[in-house]
Amino acid sequence: MLRVATPILLVAIGAAITLKAGIFNVATEGLMLVAAFLSVVLSTLTGSLLVGLLLTIGLTILLALVYGMVTVTLRADPIIAGLGINMFAAGITSWLLQSVLNSPGGFSSPETLILPGLDVAAFNNLPVLAAIFNSQNAITYSSWILALLAYLFVHRSKYGLQLRATGEHPVAATTVGISPVRWQYISLILCGFFCALGGMALSMGSIHLFTKGMTAGRGFISFAAASFAVGDIPGTVFISFLFSLFSSLTIRLVGLGIPTRIVQMIPYLVTLVALIFARRRIRL
């Protein structure tokens, strides 16, 4: 369950930060897809996990900045431009798979380049905890630390206050000397970073394979998770875990003979139901 949760958790935090800066950022889907693709491909091509991952983070942030330039500076509609980024991501990954990598459909990296798992020795005597916490990969562990850091940054630091002011009332923020534009860009850089990690966790977490369109709406679901919590980090984390719980339950349901397509529907339906219960006006 925790492993399933990691990508959604990370991307949701990224979405939450941009939401706090007042950007209705549906581009998370595309950013995540690009990161999932790049991490597998670049780590294979460079032969080094570290170099591949760093390049992925850099390039994903770059794409987030392109989105930022179009929405913040050129003042495009964030939803429409976000859909544009998603379409671009779907196109470019599938195009590169065919034209450069010559493997339409998917690309897998060698087994040696899988993310390292971590074992916490202290849990070895406690079977339940060991089953939950051990043999999770490095990204899963870092995601919890990053969630904590994000919480401290957004809710407990003076920078977080500036960030939230930007989203809540840009004019008021400007009058006290905060530059909303700068904070929107910063939030997008952070979002790019989190989406990069989320994408990596998806394609290199338990499997080491990228398939065409593999995010399948997870970016949207993460965005939804962030928007229920109105960008508050603790709420976002809670809801991401809740969604992931349902997703991991669905994997069990396939074994019980429930049709695959019905099972695949559950995460989207859960998100929808949550959306109805939240009933909050996210967008003005």
Binding site: V66, Y67, V70, L74, R75, A76, D77, I80, A81, L83, G84, I85, N86, M87, F88, A89, A90, G91, I92, S94, W95, Q98, S99, P104
Partner: peptide, 19 residues
């Protein structure tokens, strides 16, 4: 590959609402 067309389309969608 023809997917380049999807890339072009995505970029248009990205930019078309600017301003």
């Amino acid at each position: 590959p023809r997917d380049i067309v999807v890339v072009i389309q995505g970029l248009i969608l990205l930019l078309v609402t600017a301003q």
